[in-house]
Amino acid sequence: MRRLVVYMLLVLFALLCLVPIAWLVASAFKANADFHVYPVVPPVDRLTLANFTSLFTQMPFLRFMMNSFFVAGATVILQLFFSSLGGFALAKYDFAGKKAVMGVMLATMMIPGPVLLAPMYELIYHMGLIDSHLGLIVPGMVNVFGMFLFRQSMLSVPDEMLQAARIDGCNEFQIFWHVVMPVSRPIVGAFCLIAFMGTWNSFLWPQIILQSSDRFTLPIGLNQMIGVYEADYGAMMAGTLLAVLPVVVLFFLLQKEFIAGLTKGAVKG
């Protein structure tokens, strides 16, 4: 009996979570005229692909998507390389200044991001990177959280394995590349997903930096479309649906690693 109540509560909340998403999917296939007629779901025979067609033929949606992929891809790869290599050094070597480096990084993690907006804008302005994708990618290279994530995870790689690699003829970088990174595959997966979601959904910084519409990423572009193509709700929902898809796909590929990575950070505080 009590179990039934529990299930009902769980199902109720599951519905609350899913209904807006279902509505998004339905709306993406809804003709604009039908929004007022069928607020929930129109009959199946009234569903249309017109929204998607207009996204790609009349609006620069494809360009936004390509821009987003480029910026997110480049940022994730750079972050991955810098953070994992730095995390490896901090996890597996003793060297002078190590404590200082970690202390400074931890301290800066406490500072909320918006503090950096003004000086960062100034810096990017002087580097001549306003209204460019580099202006998004370059400041995004540094991911202190990611570096600590890698350090935490690489601490558990046994020293003997690194020594074996040394004996087997690896130089120090080859140890990282051939042994430590492959062994850290789960955390690499989790990191890639977290970093990708962060960049893919980034709004404020691109909103500040980007000016030309042909450089817009998806969040900026879709937001702008609302102003330009007013009342084209169907296209907007279709665009939102397509914009979310890459994250969902990546999540399904990496979900096991992702949950583990998320909660690993939590337990360590």
Binding site: E160, Q163, I167, N171, V183
Partner: peptide, 28 residues
């Protein structure tokens, strides 16, 4: 170590878990 041309067997064996047996043997 890589310049000394010595081989070593460790107490924990220190096998590379992501490589197959063949991959481990071929690695050096």
């Amino acid at each position: 170590p890589r310049a000394r041309n010595i081989a070593m067997v460790f107490q924990s064996y220190a096998l590379y878990p992501h490589k197959t047996v063949q991959g481990n043997i071929e690695f050096p």
